[in-house]
Design a protein around this nucleic acid. Structure first.
Lengths: 226, 226
DNA sequence: GACTCTTCTTAGCAAATTCTTAGAAACGGA
DNA sequence: TCCGTTTCTAAGAATTTGCTAAGAAGAGTC
């Protein structure tokens, strides 16, 4: 997930909100919390989140109301993940119907929530095509092309390339890549990153053209032209 | 929902019928009520509804009978939402089996009923025939063809294929497919998806042509040409 | 009750992927 | 240029993943 992914959590239960905030921040996301409908709406305007986690039960205005209002305004593109109570099955139908993109029932499993969040972020805008020079990464179909040529990547190779394409020009340290692509804790001794950069270079390289993945000695790698 | 959406309610309990009528009209739908099977059938002919809400328990001829007759006539394209009693689970199977498109158990939640109705209407109004290469999936008749060849699928196989056809080219993870097609909670360990993809491949495959359902190793499956 | 059809599980094989290792190559400061 | 450090890469071991056959369980049908 992009480091600059912004998550708005709208949840009146402070301890749940706090838990979410900590977990999400731990994953490198930028988090903002709101504890009722109106402030949630306001935050959606100001904070411009990439994705919104919305509790269906809120004081003042319930989650469905917030959702409706968000969709009515129309300027709100962020996908919405609903938090619903286990014993209110009709809510699911309802919220999906009003434009929620997915839902998780409380009490939720954090891994599941993160997984669903990741899906939403990835598919934001439906078909997101990342471009660097003549390299294209389609995050919906997971297709990678270099000019006309289609490139087959393994899962890991793809994840690495997608992450780099989401952060073009930026120098990404091995530690960062390990954390984001390999989910590794800090301080593991390995050179997988180097190895995979090697794989990618071999696959996306065009003879006679400069490499897109550049080595920044002592710092890491960067995906960029020239 | 489109304002010109026409709903036929076939329900012998006058107060329930009336409630539905008011609620639906309040949402801008055009409503007609019938209180027994034969007049329901007649109304279906004359009123030409977009969608039919049908009680399974009716005097004279029960809902399943009406449904059968509707489907037998064939000129009746409208999707049918069944109203079933809570304690008659076998009815559900029956009615879905006879061509009902969805059902709601009584006593029903009005919001849920509306949501389901909306889904049915949208499905109708939307693309009826999904196409990927020379594969056709008719969501109205549930017919599947590959070129000239008609393909017989089981219910599950069909649901899986329809979902994939509704998301062509896109890589669909096993988790997503489990959630959408199997209604599974997150985190279940199973390989049903793989097995059913295998079934589909065997049925929709054409010798000497590349498979339409592609495996994206480590990620999921995608329905696409080439 | 036997038969059929469908759904789903299990288990084992085959193949692809992931990651480690270790030596080669490249780099940059003196 | 030389040398220590960093990066690259080939090769192979270990693990994971996907596919399929076979069959159990359940429901419907004759």
């Amino acid at each position: 997930m992009k480091p600059e992914t912004r998550v708005l959590v709208v949840e009146d239960d402070r301890s749940i909100a706090r838990l979410l905030e900590l977990e999400l921040e731990h994953r490198g996301l930028v988090v903002r919390c709101a504890h009722d409908g109106p402030s949630g709406l306001q935050a959606a305007e100001q904070f411009k989140p990439t994705v919104i986690v919305l509790d269906i039960m809120l004081p003042g205005m319930d989650g469905v109301g917030v959702l409706k209002e968000l969709r009515r305004r129309g300027n709100q593109e962020a996908p919405v993940l609903m938090l619903t109570a286990r014993d209110a099955p009709s809510d699911k139908v309802h919220s999906l119907d009003w434009g929620a993109d997915d839902y998780v029932t409380k009490p939720f499993n954090m891994e599941e929530l993160l997984a669903r969040l990741r899906v939403l972020v990835r598919r934001r805008g439906g078909e997101e095509v990342l471009r660097v020079a003549d390299l294209e990464v389609n995050t919906a179909t997971m297709e990678v092309r270099r000019g006309e040529r289609r490139i087959d990547l393994t899962a890991r190779e793809y994840e690495l390339l997608q992450f780099m394409a989401q952060n073009p020009r930026r120098v990404l340290s091995r530690d960062l890549l390990l954390a984001r692509v390999w989910d590794q804790e800090y301080g593991v001794e390995t050179n997988v990153v180097d190895v995979y950069v090697g794989y990618l270079r071999k696959k996306i390289g065009e003879p006679g053209r400069p490499r897109l993945i550049q080595t920044v000695r002592g710092a890491g790698y960067a995906l960029r032209e020239e």
